[in-house]
Simulated scan of single mutants.
Amino acid sequence: MYHDIVLHNGVTMPAVGFGTWMLKGEPGKQAILDALAVGYLLIDTAHMYDNEAIVGQAVAESGLEREEVFITTKLCRTRAGYELARQGIEESLARLQTDYIDLLLIHEPYDKALDMYRALTEAYRKGQVRAIGISNFNAKQYLDFIGSCDIIPMVNQVECHIYYRRKELQQTLMSKGTQMQAWSPFTEGKKPIFQEPVLQAIGRQYGKTAAQVALRYLVQQGISVVPKSSHRERMKENLDIFDVTLTARDIARIQQLETGKTLFGWYDD
Rank of each mutant, 00 (worst) to 15 (best):
A37Q: 12
V38G: 00
L41K: 15
L41Q: 13
I43C: 02
A46V: 07
H47M: 07
H47G: 04
H47W: 07
D50H: 12
N51T: 14
N51M: 15
E52R: 09
I54Q: 09
V55A: 08
Q57Y: 05
G63N: 01
L64Q: 06
L64M: 07
R66V: 00
E68P: 07
E68N: 13
V69A: 08
F70V: 09
F70K: 04
T72Y: 00
T73P: 14
L75A: 10
T78H: 10
Q87D: 15
G88W: 07
E90P: 04
E91Y: 10
L93Q: 14
A94H: 13
R95H: 11
R95M: 11
L96S: 06
L96I: 08
Q97N: 14
D99W: 09
D99P: 02
I101C: 11
I101H: 06
L103H: 05
L103F: 05
L103V: 08
I106Y: 03
P109H: 02
P109N: 03
D115P: 02
Y117K: 04
A119R: 09
T121H: 06
T121F: 08
T121V: 10
A123R: 11
R125S: 01
R125K: 10
K126F: 00
G127Q: 14
Q128W: 13
V129A: 04
V129S: 02
G133R: 10
I134S: 03
S135T: 05
Q141L: 07
S148Y: 03
C149V: 15
P153H: 09
M154G: 04
V155L: 12
V158I: 15
E159D: 02
E159R: 10
E159T: 03
H161R: 03
Y164H: 15
Y164D: 12
